[in-house]
């Protein structure tokens, strides 16, 4: 089996390249291999769609948590400020 023929049937390698592509750049060879594989493999096309969706959701999750703040309870905050003030008074 030639190398291009091999990638055509190798979903493990293709999904690896799908991940790499989203975070770094692929070599020309890798790009070609991935394109050939995806052209013939609908399962990996589904994987790719979902992988991109997951990355987007993780990013959204994080941006939302920047808007929607969690809060510490007031007692803990008071203790915390007391500790800081104590530390300041030492100087």
């Amino acid at each position: 089996m030639g190398p291009l023929k091999k990638i055509q049937y190798n979903c493990r390698k293709a999904t690896f390249l799908i991940e790499k592509k989203q975070l770094a750049s692929l070599t020309l060879r890798e790009k070609l291999e991935l394109r050939i594989h995806l052209a013939g493999c609908s399962i990996c096309r589904t994987f790719q769609k979902q992988s991109i969706l997951i990355n987007r959701m993780v990013k959204d999750m994080f941006t939302n948590s920047q808007h929607q703040q969690f809060t510490l309870d007031d007692d803990y905050k008071k203790q915390l400020q007391d500790k800081i003030d104590q530390q300041l008074n030492k100087n």
Binding site: S65, Q66, Q69, F70, L80
Partner: peptide, 19 residues
């Protein structure tokens, strides 16, 4: 201004760490 740290940044930092 450390006297203001808790009121200004505690919730922000807590959210940052928790996420």
């Amino acid at each position: 201004n450390p006297h203001q740290w808790v009121s200004r940044y505690a919730d922000y930092l807590y959210t940052y760490a928790l996420s």
